[in-house]
Nucleic acid binder design. Sequence first.
DNA 1: AGCAAAATCCTTATAAATGGTGATTGAACA
DNA 2: TGTTCAATCACCATTTATAAGGATTTTGCT
Lengths: 217, 217
Amino acid sequence: MSKKINILIVDDHQIFLEGICALLESIPELNIVDTALNGKIVPQLISQHEIDIVVTDINMPEMDGIELSKLLKDKYPKIKTLILSTHNDSAMISKCIKNNVDGYLLKNAEKKELLKALKTIYDGEKYFAEEVKTEFMNQTFYQKKDRYNTIQLSRREKEVLKYITLEYTTQEISDKLFISQNTVNTHRKNLLSKLNSKNTAGLVKYAMENRLLDEED
Amino acid sequence: MSKKINILIVDDHQIFLEGICALLESIPELNIVDTALNGKIVPQLISQHEIDIVVTDINMPEMDGIELSKLLKDKYPKIKTLILSTHNDSAMISKCIKNNVDGYLLKNAEKKELLKALKTIYDGEKYFAEEVKTEFMNQTFYQKKDRYNTIQLSRREKEVLKYITLEYTTQEISDKLFISQNTVNTHRKNLLSKLNSKNTAGLVKYAMENRLLDEED
DNA sequence: AGCAAAATCCTTATAAATGGTGATTGAACA
DNA sequence: TGTTCAATCACCATTTATAAGGATTTTGCT
């Protein structure tokens, strides 16, 4: 038999806190270690108990869920964070994903999904509600739209850019492609100009944003 | 009234091809321009008709859906691609997303979802089935796991890395942070060492993979 | 056949990044 | 109170990248 998952629940609404507690306590695999009405006292509670996952709301006075998740990732990297948010707020979702939370559920989630999320997170994977995934996808594909349609790189330019991104020097690229360094340099210059970049960093950023490394020609 | 969406359907199974045709023809917003039993003749058909979206299977003889989508993105960037795949094959999903297809549905999709996907794609956005989104998320979070847990960058190092990624030179970073170029250089060197990179490209790659630019401290 | 774009190569100069080594200060922590 | 680590600065040598010109050859397309 596997160990119970130790959970700390944080929410500033007493009523919701009690509700979620009751819901989770009815699940034998879980162990509600403690609860908190705001994020500020969480570090203290953590030092007193062994905790696997912190389940937290986002909108809270004093210290909100995002700040809390940051603090946790920073000070206690082993403790996972599951966000439980009322609204399907795209800005919040972005922030949370960027801050590397381990999961994000909406408060209307069913008991079954909640358990699944907790188990998944406990196993070291991420768990996001469908709505959250959709938001994440949209966000990912938003940025590249404009660039992608306007900028045309030639086959060779893409190739050179690929090797630049793979940390090859001009020298090494010229060897790899059996062309002179001068030629590689010309491609480099054209890339800088086409992609409107000041230096290598800009080129690599473009390559990453447009997933150039994945392409196999 | 808006223009009809011109669609070309590609599938090597005659029966499925007819089925999907019948299904789509019953929708007034759509206009089935033509069909094809393999990817090879698609370029020819494109030159003959005006086409907005190519709906294609993946597993096909001669030229498969992935090759086709590549060709389309390359030669006819305005034409969108919607993949219709039988299997929920994670490797295929990865490949397609990497190759920047505009949508990916499973063949068990309902008429309603099919229409929604086509409309969404026609509007310039992406559309993926839920299963596909899940796969994409998993993939995204898989890579960074190992690195993220082992490598610890200091506050200052992250800051310097951020500006490197933003195409600042050492000079400019030192001005921005009110420290000497020597110090910036030291951070640079430590970053190269910590992130096991040969040069700036490696640093930027790491920053991109770990979404360092998004963080707001 | 003829045009346009891509790919190739060249030189000269300057700016920037990388490698190596060493040293000081202050904060955090046990 | 001693130790670790982050942050700061310095010097020197070398390698790479960037800037700015011009030039020729291949290739794809009509």
